[in-house]
Design a protein around this nucleic acid. Structure first.
Lengths: 175, 175
DNA sequence: CCACAAGACTTCGAAGTCGAACTATGTGAG
DNA sequence: CTCACATAGTTCGACTTCGAAGTCTTGTGG
């Protein structure tokens, strides 16, 4: 980190503080923490980039894909409401409205008011939506296998376990 | 894509396709893959949420924080150019321009044209920026430790190693 | 010495997202 | 029975981001 044969006259304050940071990272017991956090973030970022590219080929955004997969996983035959979808996709309800507008225009979903509770709207995947979903699954399957190819099956399981432990702890922290 | 099943529209189509998906997930050797991918994504999302909250308290966005930390890590005494920062933060150069505008207005950074190559701009952290940086580090340190508290130190190292293996493989795939 | 090509950054128009206000439906108290 | 209130969803205005075109500087060949 002492990358400088630097002159002493530049912001001396900055230099001092930079050393402070180095101390922070080096002194704490949490270099391992930093490593994990950085790796998780980096991997997620890369994966997202790939997904975006994949989906773009099919004229889909990551957000639209999130809606579709949520509908497949938990939609059942009656579909899901916009609020549930917004929550699942971590966007504001207003954004979901707009997103569903687009998807309905492209006939990927259908939007019908619940006859039993006319405040609610039921969003369901259309046949076109299902077809596209299968298409994406088929491609992303190959991608993901490639991504994890450097790991043995045992390693993958171990990795999944560790990550799930962290996530489990998160749930508690959240309260 | 098209080909094959082009049946009439009916709920039964949906049901059949849903079974197809189940087969996809269950049959492939990659349930472990799915587990990992899902966990990485979920953990990253949760972490981001926390960071956003933390940073919001200091009137910072995640993007601005990315700029600051990049400058600290690799800025040295001469700073970095907007293009480098945009690349590091994974945003378009135009977005970085805007972001730097805001940060400069708040005196978090300084922007000076390189005297030796007047096409280039040198972005550096100001003293105010340094101060804020230390502030964030101090807080996020505690947060991250909490997040990884369910893991032993050995587990953390193992987790970091596994993730780094995956990322390493990614670099090669990218070509 | 000047014109032109290349590179680095900025400006501009379009699209997506958010929070707040608004509309319509269902629910419970008097 | 009716009115206030809670709930689900949409509309509206402001902000951020992106890609493409534009501006300014540097380097090169005639």
């Amino acid at each position: 980190m002492s990358a400088s044969a630097g002159p002493a006259e530049s912001p001396s304050t900055a230099e001092r503080l930079q050393q402070d940071v180095a101390v922070f990272v080096a002194a704490g017991a949490n270099e391992s923490v930093q490593r994990v956090i950085t790796a998780v973030h980096g991997l997620s970022r890369r994966l997202d980039q790939w997904y975006d590219r994949q989906l773009a080929d099919l004229d889909l955004t990551a957000g639209e894909w999130a809606v579709m997969s949520k509908l497949v996983r938990d939609g059942g035959d009656l579909g899901l409401t916009p609020s549930v979808l917004a929550d699942a996709a971590n966007v504001a309800p207003s954004s979901m409205t707009h997103r569903l507008d687009r998807m309905a225009e492209r006939s990927l979903i259908t939007r019908t008011t619940d006859p039993e509770n006319r405040v609610r709207v039921r969003v369901r995947l259309s046949d076109d939506g299902w077809q596209l979903f299968r298409c994406v699954i088929r491609e992303s399957d190959m991608l993901e296998s490639d991504v994890l190819s450097p790991l043995s099956k045992a390693d993958r399981v171990r990795l999944a376990e560790l990550l799930e432990m962290v996530i489990g702890g998160l749930e508690e922290l959240d309260t």
